[in-house]
């Protein structure tokens, strides 16, 4: 269960965020975020509900627009690029949604085919099938290919959601609470899947979670979002080597016997 040593390139930042701010109405959610994600790294983002973790990765994938600050993704300054460039950048980023967001009018196969058919003009039927089977195999759910999303369990839906983002071979993966609401064994399976994706597809990832087991299993580095800023960033043990009343409960809740 121990995490394999990841192949991280500290000289290559795939995401670089400086002074990022975002408000909704009067509520100042993000108040000056600084963050680097290195090539090949899994960065875990921890934080309480409503601290703006989902908002952060929505800003990175261009679903929301920042109020202030810069976001550089794969060499593109998000606030300066055109709509076109944003579109081609988006398919290099995989986004695994908090609630899977499978298209529930389509079968698993159609869900997986959809991004391929839409983005790779002139792709042949055979290539599509090869790709679909390969990602289904990667998430270990080949037998569900003809099922509807409503017939899948929560854990299966999560994995199909991950498979759907993997099919475009993204360079960056953003996971929004991949283990939320799942039983411990499925959680471990998902964590292993995240690590496997990192190794097999050589992606850099941001993993949002409340689950410290997950953080420990998949994270090369951990960042704690407190009051709209990353106040503690480092290895798992570094982040929790503190008596800060905003941090300690996370650890105690998960690990105290």
């Amino acid at each position: 269960m121990e995490k394999q040593k990841a192949n991280i390139d500290l000289n290559n930042e795939v995401i670089r965020i400086r002074g990022l701010q975002k408000s909704f109405g009067d509520y100042h959610v993000l108040r000056g975020i600084d963050l680097d994600l290195y090539q090949g790294e899994n960065l875990v983002v921890l934080g309480r509900s409503g601290t703006g973790k989902s908002v952060l990765i929505k800003l990175i994938s261009g679903m929301l627009y920042p109020d202030a600050g810069t976001i550089n993704v794969l060499g593109n300054e998000l606030t300066h690029i055109t709509e076109r460039e944003m579109e081609s950048l988006r398919i290099r980023i995989g986004f695994s949604f908090q609630n899977s967001a499978l298209y529930d009018s389509m079968t698993v196969r159609q869900n997986l085919e959809f991004p391929l058919v839409r983005n790779r003009k002139g792709i042949t039927r055979k290539e599509i099938d090869t790709n679909v089977h390969s990602v289904l195999d990667a998430v270990g759910l080949s037998q569900t290919i003809n099922q509807m999303p409503s017939e899948l369990s929560g854990g299966q839906r999560k994995r199909i959601g991950i498979a759907r983002t993997l099919i475009l071979n993204p360079e960056i993966m953003l996971y929004d609470e991949p283990t939320a609401g799942l039983d411990p064994i499925t959680c471990i399976e998902i964590n292993e899947l995240i690590n496997e994706v990192q190794q097999r597809y050589n992606t850099s990832s941001i993993v949002i979670t409340h689950d410290l087991t997950c953080a420990k299993m998949v994270g090369d580095r951990v960042a704690m979002l407190l009051d709209g800023q990353f106040q503690r960033v480092g290895s798992f043990d570094e982040v929790f080597a503190t008596d800060d009343a905003r941090v300690k409960p996370f650890y105690d809740y998960n690990f105290v016997e």
Binding site: R90, D104, R118, N119, R164, L168
Partner: peptide, 21 residues
């Protein structure tokens, strides 16, 4: 109802980030 449930379950966002307008 169809678009509403797609919005609520973030399917519309999923479409947007996977390169379909």
């Amino acid at each position: 109802a169809e678009l509403g449930s797609m919005r609520v379950t973030e399917q519309i966002d999923a479409m947007e980030v996977s390169g379909t307008k």
